[in-house]
Amino acid sequence: MGIIDNINKLFDHRIRLGIMSILVVNEDADFNRLKELLDVTDGNLASHIKALEQAEYIKVEKTFVGRKPNTSYSASKLGTSEFKKHIDALEKLIQKPI
C-alpha cells in the first residue's frame, strides 16, 4: 500500500513526466525548448503545462525578449519534491517483483 501512495496520478502521463524531468535538472526552460525536447504540439503541451501549473508544481514567468513575449517555466519546491517521491516509488516498484 505504502508504495502505491507515492505514485503520483499527475505524473501518470508521458508528457507531464517529461516536463518535470526537464525542469528539475534545468534552472528554467521556455515553451519552445520544452516543445522541441518533448516533440509535441503546442496545444498538447499547453494543456499539460496548465495541469502542472494548477497543482503548483511549476512556476511560470512571463517576460519580454525585445517585443516578443517569452514564457519560461521552472519547477517549484513542491513540484521537485513530489517528482522525487514519484521516482523513488517507481524504482521500488521495478525492484519488487509483483
Binding site: L17, V25, E91
Partner: peptide, 14 residues
Amino acid sequence: KDINEIKNLMNKSS
C-alpha cells in the same frame, strides 16, 4: 520505460 525516458530527457536537456 518511464524511468528510461526520464533519464534520457534529463541528459538531453541539461
